[in-house]
């Protein structure tokens, strides 16, 4: 390895080349400028803007703010029972979506990578992610038709004797709609990690006495775990923050946090209140996903 790392070789053998080395070491940082400015302009500044607005209250027609900073919005958030309800709904829905989507996507990705013959893999994957090609909103509308009382899902449930179930305009429909999206997201992530598993590892496991399920438990699952965790984190982020699916499929009654946030804009035109919801959403997403993402790196340390 040392032979392809001229820097470390130079360091140990030629200490007199220090100045030159420093310049070489310094250079890569310039390359970070585009990435850093991208993050700054598209993420940091808006977040700081939202954060600062969440400590304001409106004045007049809504686009002016009263002078000074206040915790009023946060106090308001944490003292209303309805906010807890909206928050809890978002949380429960997101967790269910992540659970269902993980289970389904895992089975799908495993089938594509390890069971479908190689030459059909690309095609199968393409079919599974094809719905990505249409807009999120259009798909939500399509699910409206599918889940309606007169729609095919209902007809099928009646056929198999489950009886008439009200799905559309309840959060069951929200969970279904988001799960479909999560399955695609997770399948893509899982496919790419599973595809990268060296087939010889499976052969080696079998050769060393592992049955099929043992190979899965000892090799395939631990090696695909990063994809599962990252996919799950992304799915959580999207489920927790999505407004379209709960609005179009969930019925707008018993709203979730994102709907409360949009409501703060459309009903009250209250930017500070909406910012407060956004900050609470952001913090929640960070608190939930950071440990997941950290966990995804465990076991693959390259140090």
């Amino acid at each position: 390895m040392a032979s392809i790392l001229p820097l470390s070789a130079g360091k140990s053998n030629k200490p007199q080349a220090g100045g030159r080395e420093r310049r070489i070491m310094g250079n890569p940082w310039y390359g970070l400028i585009p990435a850093v400015s991208y993050l700054l302009f598209f993420y940091l500044i808006p977040v700081v803007y939202l954060l600062s607005r969440s400590f304001k209250i409106t004045q007049g027609s809504g686009i002016q703010f009263a002078p000074g900073l206040t915790l009023a919005n946060y106090i308001e958030f944490f003292t209303a029972r309805t906010n807890y309800l909206a928050y809890a709904r978002s949380m429960v829905i997101s967790i269910l979506v992540v659970l269902f989507a993980s289970l389904i996507a895992y089975a799908v990705a495993y089938t594509i990578v390890f069971i479908v013959p190689k030459r059909y893999q690309q095609m199968t994957l393409l079919l599974i992610i094809a719905p990505f090609w249409t807009s999120f909103v259009i798909r939500a509308f399509a699910w409206q038709l599918l889940l309606a009382e007169a729609g095919p899902v209902s007809a099928f449930l009646k056929q198999v004797g489950v009886g008439s179930l009200k799905i559309l305009n309840t959060h069951v429909a929200t969970v279904i709609g988001l799960t479909v999206f999560g399955v695609m997201m997770l399948t893509l992530n899982l496919y790419s990690v599973m595809e990268n598993i060296n087939p010889n590892l499976l052969a080696a496991a079998a050769d060393l006495g592992a049955r099929r399920w043992q190979t899965f438990k000892e090799v395939v699952f631990p090696l695909s775990r990063p994809g599962l965790l990252i996919g799950a984190a992304l799915t959580f982020i999207i489920s927790f923050g999505d407004y379209v699916v709960p609005s179009l499929l969930g019925g707008g009654v018993r709203i979730v946090l994102s709907q409360a946030m949009v409501g703060a804009m459309t009903t009250s035109f209250n930017i500070p209140r909406a910012s407060t919801y956004a900050m609470i959403m952001l913090v929640t997403i960070l608190v939930v996903t950071m440990p997941i993402l950290r966990l995804s790196r465990v076991g693959l340390n390259t140090e």
Partner: peptide
């Protein structure tokens, strides 16, 4: 494979990473 008294060593060693 697990019922044969053979063992295989792979070109890329196939060590579990």
């Amino acid at each position: 494979p697990y019922s044969r008294n053979t063992s295989m060593m792979f070109q890329d060693y196939a060590l579990f990473p």
